[in-house]
Amino acid sequence: MTTPSTESPETAPAAENTGAAAVPGPRATAWRRRRASAARFWREYRRHRAGVLGLAALLLFALVALTAPLTVGSDVASVTDAPGRPLQSPSAQFPLGTDQFGRSLLALVIWGSRVSLLVGLLAAVLSVAIGALIGITAGHFRGWYATVMMRVTDWFLVMPTLVLAIALATVMSRSLGTIVLAIGVTTWPTTARLVRAQTLAVESRPYIERARALGGGHWHVMSRHVLPNVMPLVLAQTTLIISSAILAEATLAFLGLGDPTVVSWGGLLQDAREAGAVSSGDWWYLVPPGIAIAVVALAFTLCGRAVEAVLNPRLGVSR
């Protein structure tokens, strides 16, 4: 004789629901995998001492740029309320000296970090976005479209980037947007070439044919399969291009093609040249912005090489 179950009909579905709730859903599983991947990336990145040093330098410059309104004030560029004498050598009051208007060079360098970092970042993002778009579409569609796009890319590759940027900055209005546009539309060909090669390698894999056989269209293949596989390359390329973009912004500003109302590191070098700091021996006018440009460019390069080594260990980049 069987003993009747003491479990009520209401408790049985509740137990089943509790067991079902304990199983993580697809979204939770995806987020857990992303967190594990990010932790694994950081663990590998920390092994590259040069990359960690570059990242620390970038965080320091970012902190200085973000806190500039609090540390030096927003009226640092004013020439009517300059606190010192023109071209005053470094002293306790002005650790980096003053410019030809009597403004503190330390305050100008700190405030100029905001513009230089912002322009470099925006120009690099624009450049990588254009290069990734052309590279993915040229590698996916192929045919006449890929031929035309690659010939345009080759033309941009053989043309001097600085000359093209100068030409664009000359014919357009002098503003930060012009500088970003001039750098972004002239530095994308290398990214396009790299992304196209990676796209061709990805689309030769069997799961791409399976996705097409199941009805996946062009947008589905490019956005769901190709883009996630080329994103590590795009990320590494972005960190490497930022340093070039900062140097290009400084060059254009030094040539007088930047916005004269905005303080940047390249603009400070241009002001020093116009003030005759080189011939008069006023080294404190030239050295601080030059060192800042060199250190930031080197820091981004170190970070880019470390990211590239983590994402592609076969490169064998020294740690």
Rank of each mutant, 00 (worst) to 15 (best):
T2A: 15
T2L: 15
T3G: 08
P4N: 02
S5F: 02
A12H: 01
A12N: 00
A15Q: 11
N17E: 10
V23R: 09
G25Q: 06
R27H: 07
A30S: 02
R33Q: 12
R34E: 05
R34K: 05
R40T: 15
E44H: 04
R47F: 13
A50K: 02
L53F: 10
G54W: 04
L58Y: 07
F61V: 14
A62Q: 09
A68N: 08
A77C: 15
P86F: 13
P86S: 11
S91I: 04
S91K: 04
L96D: 04
L96Y: 02
G97A: 10
L105K: 13
L105I: 14
L106T: 14
A107P: 13
A107F: 09
V109W: 06
G112W: 02
S113K: 13
R114M: 06
R114W: 07
S116D: 07
S116Q: 07
L117I: 09
L117D: 09
V119A: 14
A124E: 14
S127N: 02
I130V: 15
I130M: 10
G131R: 03
I134G: 12
I134S: 11
A138V: 09
R142Y: 15
P160F: 03
P160S: 07
T161Y: 00
A165D: 03
I166L: 14
A167Q: 03
M172K: 00
A182D: 09
G184T: 05
T187D: 10
T187R: 10
T187Y: 09
W188F: 14
W188R: 12
P189G: 02
T191K: 05
A192R: 00
V195Q: 07
Y207V: 08
S223H: 14
S223C: 12
R224I: 05
R224W: 08
P228V: 10
V230K: 00
A236K: 00
T239A: 15
T239K: 06
I246V: 09
L247M: 03
A250Y: 01
L252T: 05
L252N: 02
F254Y: 12
F254T: 01
L255N: 10
G256M: 03
G256Y: 01
L257D: 06
G258I: 02
S264W: 01
S264N: 06
W265E: 00
G267Q: 01
L268A: 06
E274C: 01
A275L: 06
A275F: 08
G276F: 14
S280Q: 14
G281T: 00
G281H: 01
W284N: 08
Y285R: 02
Y285W: 06
L286P: 07
G290E: 03
A292S: 11
A294G: 08
A299D: 11
F300V: 06
C303W: 01
G304Y: 07
G304I: 05
G304S: 10
E308Q: 00
E308N: 00
A309E: 11
V310C: 05
V317Q: 14
S318I: 15
